[in-house]
Design a protein around this nucleic acid. Structure first.
Length: 872
RNA sequence: GCGAGAGUGGCGGAACUGGUAGACGCGCUGGACUUAGGAUCCAGUUCUGGCGACAGAGUGGGAGUUCAAGUCUCCCCUCUCGCACCA
């Protein structure tokens, strides 16, 4: 072996070797335990960033570890390749999204390979390939026929100037990000997946996902947002001909219905305009509705902490009290939740209270607080607590909790309403008025209406000859060669749907596709999916805790209902890794600075451009906008893949945020060198012996200690990886072992000590163990040293080491002696010394006696093999 | 506002079911080897007092349970993340 550790040489050598030998390739092996390890696939943005490096390093350690434990490990990688950035880049650089995307993929693949990740690259897929999305279209049709998909009108953010829809993140404070003009809500017919059909099942299974972080489960539950209550119908006073006669509302507080004094409808509610027609309020309402349409939802929420509403000019009747309730429309009512209408009970809902105060509406108290006498006049805020019913006719005197049930039952009996469960989750709108996505396989025929593309005509190819338009407008509607077609039913000229699918659709089933990525007769080969799925361990960022994971769970249920898979939950265990963070640097003149725009001279840091002192800001998530980023490429050049991997794993446990530290990286590099130097120093000596495998009793002195410590390290590292995925403590255990080896007398003073053959074998055992334990973390170094030890089979194919129980036991140990809980002395005793003896020794101890003094001993607690506590 | 998580040396972080607080790494200090070392090796490093053995204090703050609390209970403070006019 070389005396010097040279990451550049060994990383190339072993990456080439693994590739040439096909060591990462995997096929189904019935009878062999499988393990499916998946990391969230990246969007091909151009370069990998530290977040990817961390995510994929964590995954790779587990994959390599599980392989050594004898599992048949599926560890694939691919590209979430559709999406808007490709369009934007294409417009900006006057290129084509496909070209841009594929070039990025090539670049990123190279970078991932340089990291030494153990992917089976034969399974690589990109979601923008027709071979991929054709099966998505196929599934869309299946779902269409099963009525799992439907079309309805829905609002989108629309920029009139750019003539395009905008994603929520492209709307900044209500304005278009490109042209700065007002964004308005426009109604378009769009496709929806009926995820709400599965809402209760998705919720129920949240509690069965024992391998998921609590946090993610909570987020999913909140997103689903189940609430129980009642639906109540309020008759409209003198409804006009063309109008519904009642307004249904959803409420979680049916107990307060006697206190409902007005009605609020969402501005988009179809009744709003109808009600105000021919009243004095018509103009005011029109103005208000128009103004609200200009605001996108998020802006409306932020700007309108102030409640604002307009009277429609009409009334409805409280079915329980006969109260004549004015009907308002207001900015805080959401069309998407419940029925888009709110029965307002100002006495018991803070929002309604504020609204009533502002518009001088009547307040009726119906739940009295314990030991108080609430009145409309004395209320300064809504009372939302529990209490006894008042002003509620036959329900007076009972608790409001009881009243919830009774009033619901009464409403139901009288046909005025019913108990209901309402969910916040809405159906999944998948239409995108965008070019770079999978076309929705539908044809619009003037005479037959909506016609699905016949299965044998799939895929509906996304035309690659489209010219992208300034502003992001999709070229598809204007592309005659794509849009114009014939109706599959009647043969008449017809037009293709020009919307594409949300990119979350692709990522909702890619993990199944990986099982048989080249299958060209189906979405996937059923037997392959049966073998590999579900994913045993999924790893990715928390930012996908809700949408991606929920959609994937939903899709799996759809596939299950279509008998394509035989399970419901795709991911058994989930790990959400923390963010990679770094301090920000900024200068008064140039704002945020990249690390290489800063000159450090000693303590001081200055801006390279203006030489002003640099302000060191707080530690935040690495982001291009804050410029606190480190390019993994630079790390690879300077330290190599192994150091980069080691640092990512060592600096923090995976679920926590990782704070970037150049010195931490140096430390990692130093450790690898330390291992290398040790190996080099003893290599000749241990070259031709076999690793010791006997009982520790055959050894003595420091070799016995090292032998045992090696076994203890195996145990510690195995537990840390297996149970908790805490690689930081696993690595520190290996460091301890290396430190112990360095500290050996025979290593420090080799000329004064002579080793027996057994002792040399112990060294070999320790060295081999270090290689094996390190191999998932720093695979190139481990492989290189393994080879140097004389092995001619890859370390990848070697089993994970096991430890001997008898090597873990300690014969002598230190017992801590406390007096009143404070550490006072230590006893060295042999294992399993009986309690009496220990007590005796403790009480005879000089230091202990000093602290007991004259006081009588009240109690002595002995924890076996651990401590003695003497209470006085 | 609601929900979740976290607060431990100069720093990143250890400490499984209550049982030696500070593993491991970084930084710092000293020494060795050196023409030199930002290389490497060795030693030290929670704070306060003392040359020292040692003593006292100490896991955001305050109470409590216990022989024993970073860990359990209650109250408070701070930070991070999610959700947020959801009827």
């Amino acid at each position: 072996m070389d005396e010097q550790y040279d990451p550049d040489i060994i990383e190339h050598r072993w990456q080439n070797y693994w590739e040439k030998e096909g060591l990462m390739k995997v096929t189904e092996a019935p009878g062999k335990k499988k393990y499916y390890l998946l990391e969230m696939f990246p969007y091909p943005s151009g370069k990998i960033h530290m977040g990817h490096v961390r995510n994929y390093t964590i995954g790779d350690v587990v994959a390599r570890y599980k392989r050594m434990r004898g599992f048949n490990v599926l560890h694939p990688m691919g590209w979430d390749a559709f999406g808007m950035p490709a369009e934007n880049a294409a417009i900006a650089n006057n290129t084509h999204p496909a070209k841009w995307t594929y070039e990025n993929i090539d670049n990123m693949r190279t970078q991932l390979k340089q990291m030494g990740f153990s992917y089976d690259w034969d399974r690589e897929l990109a979601t923008c390939q027709p071979e991929y999305y054709r099966w998505e279209q196929w599934l869309f049709l299946k779902m269409y026929h099963k009525k799992m998909v439907y079309r309805k009108e829905s609002f989108v953010n629309w920029c009139e100037t750019c003539q395009t829809v905008l994603a929520n993140e492209q709307v900044e404070a209500g304005l278009c990000w490109r042209c700065g003009k007002q964004v308005r809500q426009k109604k378009l017919a769009q496709w929806f997946f009926r995820i709400t059909d599965y809402v209760q099942d998705l919720l129920d299974y949240c509690d069965k996902l024992s391998g998921w972080p609590e946090k993610v489960i909570t987020m999913q539950k909140n997103w689903i947002g189940r609430s129980t209550g009642a639906q109540i119908r309020f008759p409209i006073e003198n409804p006009s001909e063309n109008m519904q006669k009642e307004i249904p509302v959803f409420t979680t507080r049916p107990d307060t219905v006697f206190g409902a004094t007005f009605m609020v409808l969402a501005p988009e509610h179809p009744l709003v305009t109808k009600l105000s027609k021919d009243t004095d309020q018509e103009a005011a309402i029109a103005e208000f509705v128009d103004r609200m349409a200009l605001q996108d939802r998020s802006a409306r929420v932020i700007e309108s902490y102030e409640k604002e509403g307009v009277f429609t000019g009409k009334y409805c009747i409280n079915p329980m009290t006969g109260y004549r309730m004015p009907i308002f429309t207001a900015n805080f009512a959401l069309m998407e939740y419940g029925t888009g209408a709110v029965m307002s009970v100002p006495a018991h809902d803070q929002r309604d209270f504020e609204f009533a105060q502002k518009y001088g509406l009547n307040i009726i108290v119906v739940v009295n607080a314990p030991n108080q006498d609430l009145t409309a006049e004395s209320l300064t805020e809504a009372y939302t607590g529990e209490g006894i019913m008042i002003n509620s006719d036959r329900f007076n005197g009972i608790t409001n909790i009881e009243a919830q049930e009774k009033i619901s039952a009464y409403l139901e009996k009288k046909g005025l309403g019913k108990k209901t469960i309402n969910y916040r989750l809405r159906d999944w709108g998948i239409s995108r008025q965008r070019y770079w996505g999978a076309p929705i396989p539908i044809i619009h025929c003037p005479s037959c209406g909506i016609v699905p593309v016949p299965e044998n005509e799939l895929p509906v190819l996304l035309p690659e000859d489209a010219d992208l338009l300034e502003g992001g407008k999709s070229p598809l509607p204007a592309l005659a060669s794509f849009k114009n077609t014939t109706c599959p039913l009647c043969g008449a000229p017809a037009q293709r749907e020009t919307d594409t699918m949300d990119t979350f659709v692709e990522s909702s089933w890619y993990f199944e596709r990986y099982c048989s990525p080249r299958c060209n007769t189906a979405m996937f080969d059923k037997s392959a999916v049966d073998y590999w799925m579900p994913v045993d361990q999924y790893i990715g960022g928390v930012e996908h805790a809700i949408l991606h994971l929920l959609y994937s769970r939903y899709f799996t249920r759809v596939l299950n209902d279509l008998s394509l898979v035989n399970f419901k939950e795709p991911f058994t265990r989930l790990l959400t890794q923390g963010m990679v963070c770094k301090e920000t640097l900024s200068c008064p003149e140039h704002g945020y600075l990249f690390p290489d725009e800063v000159i450090s001279d000693g303590e001081n840091r200055r801006c390279r451009k203006c030489n002003m002192p640099v302000t060191v800001g707080r530690v935040e998530k690495m982001s291009k906008s804050k410029k606190n980023v480190i390019d993994p490429h630079v790390l690879l050049e300077k330290y190599g893949a192994d150091t980069t991997r080691l640092f990512c794993l060592f600096a923090a446990p995976p679920e926590r945020d990782l704070e970037w530290s150049e010195q931490g990286v140096e430390g990692g590099y130093r450790f690898i060198n330390r291992v290398w130097r040790f190996a080099y120093a003893i290599m000749d000596e241990i070259q031709d012996v076999k690793a010791f495998n006997g009982s520790p009793d055959e050894l003595e002195g420091e070799f016995k200690t090292i032998y045992k410590k090696t076994h203890q390290t195996i145990q510690k590292v195995t537990d840390d990886i297996e149970e908790r995925l805490h690689f930081n403590t696993a690595i520190s255990a290996i460091m301890e072992l290396v430190n112990a080896l360095y500290g050996m007398e025979s290593f420090q003073n080799p000329q004064e000590t002579e080793k027996t053959e057994k002792e040399t074998k112990v060294l070999r055992f320790a060295m081999e163990t270090i290689c094996l334990l390190l191999s998932p973390v720093v695979p190139h170094v481990a492989e290189a040293l393994w080879y140097a030890l004389g092995h001619r089979q890859s370390i990848l194919l070697t089993s994970w080491p096991s430890y001997k129980e008898d090597a873990l036991t300690k014969e002598e140990l230190v017992i801590v002696v406390q007096v009143n809980g404070k550490l006072r002395s230590r006893l060295h005793v042999s294992v399993d010394t009986d309690e009496k003896d220990i007590k005796k020794q403790a009480l005879e101890d000089e230091k202990v006696l000093k602290f007991i003094g004259e006081k009588p001993v009240k109690k002595i607690i002995v924890v076996k093999n651990k401590l003695v506590n003497i209470a006085t």
